[in-house]
């Protein structure tokens, strides 16, 4: 890979990492969620710094072209990530429903108590 391209890619990866850390610092992302993103950023830089790392691994694993391995790995990780998010989203929406229900039930009770139970038997 030409040096210019490598440098450009390392710079992009560095910006990527900075964006991630900024998001964490500002509290936009929970630490537990950010681990994946931090690792992915460092992984990119390591792959770029060590020459021929990717092509050697892909050769060992038997991919005909290194880019094939990259696509394969990236898509696999992306699927895992989406799956994980779907699970988390379902859990979250369940909790949301339960919260709305509890708040509404409580509001109903508070109103009743404020009205001195006179609306209890309508």
């Amino acid at each position: 890979m030409p040096l210019e391209l490598t440098v450009a890619l390392i710079v992009i990866s560095a910006i990527y990492l900075i964006l991630i850390f900024r998001a964490i610092k500002k509290g936009k992302m929970q630490i537990s969620f950010s681990i994946f993103w931090i690792l992915s950023g460092f992984g990119l830089i390591i792959a770029l710094i060590i020459p021929d790392l990717i092509s050697k691994i892909s050769k060992i694993l038997g991919f005909s072209v290194p880019s094939n391995m990259m696509f394969c790995v990236t898509i696999f990780i992306a699927f895992l990530l989406i799956f994980d998010l779907t699970v988390k989203l379902s859990k979250e929406s369940k909790r949301n429903i339960s919260l709305v229900q509890e708040i509404s039930l409580l509001k109903n009770r508070v109103e009743k108590l404020e009205n001195g139970e006179k609306n209890e038997k309508v």
């Binding site: 429903i97 709305v100 708040i103 509404s104 509001k107």
Partner: peptide, 14 residues
């Protein structure tokens, strides 16, 4: 009418 007002729309199940 005796009612509970859901603060958000939950759908029939909720």
């Amino acid at each position: 009418i005796k009612h509970i007002n859901l603060v958000e729309n939950l759908g029939i199940g909720g």
